[in-house]
Simulated scan of single mutants.
Amino acid sequence: MRFVLICRLLFICTLFLSVESWWFVKSGNSRGCPRRGNARPYYFGTTHLGCMLKGRQKGKRSVPLRGTWDDTHRYIYYRGKYFEFSRSGSRSGYSRLDEHCRGKTERYPAGYSYLSLDCIERCVRRYQNEYGGYNVVSNNCHNFANRMSEVLCRRSYQCPSWCN
């Protein structure tokens, strides 16, 4: 009994160490990425995970700095395109991964960016080379959205070197 309790505590501690401080992150524009010049807004959005999993064939979809532990699928919306990450890899498109599921893009911009769509699409294509494959704990759709937010919030027009 004591061994099981210790194992559970270690598991919980491991989860907290691998999760960023999501309880401090609020929706809307962060002070760290304010509107500047002709920068374009970008948004975080979510889709209910239960809907995405419902009626899917086994293996097609799996349970996937906003919270990295949430029962939603997170994406980034920028310049009319959606940027997402799942077990099947990263993707960009003019529609969400599962359009039949209602998605919710946050009302207020998370930040503003000067970067081109071409740059962000290259980052999305090269994401797994830089950060590795999908992992439900350490590299899920929430981690992807937070990392893409870091890329978008750059104060220059220059694309990050790992995206080239």
Rank of each mutant, 00 (worst) to 15 (best):
M1A: 10
V4R: 11
I6D: 12
I6Y: 15
C7G: 12
R8L: 12
I12V: 11
W23D: 10
F24V: 08
F24D: 08
V25N: 12
V25F: 01
K26Y: 11
S27D: 15
S27F: 10
G28Q: 07
R31E: 15
G32C: 06
C33V: 04
P34W: 02
G37Q: 05
P41I: 03
T47P: 01
C51G: 15
K54W: 15
R56E: 14
G59I: 10
R61C: 15
P64F: 11
R66H: 09
R66V: 09
W69I: 15
D70P: 00
D71A: 15
T72H: 09
R74N: 05
I76Y: 05
Y78E: 06
K81A: 09
Y82Q: 01
Y82M: 02
Y82L: 03
F85H: 05
S88Q: 14
S92R: 02
G93Y: 04
G93R: 06
Y94F: 15
Y94S: 15
S95K: 15
R96A: 04
E99H: 07
E99Y: 07
H100Y: 11
C101K: 00
C101S: 00
E106S: 08
Y108M: 12
A110L: 01
S116C: 08
E121L: 04
E121A: 05
R125I: 08
R126T: 10
Y127V: 02
Y131F: 13
G132Q: 13
G133K: 08
S138N: 07
N143G: 00
N143K: 07
F144C: 00
R147D: 05
R154T: 14
R154Y: 06
R155F: 03
S161K: 14
W162A: 12
C163D: 07
N164W: 11
N164E: 14
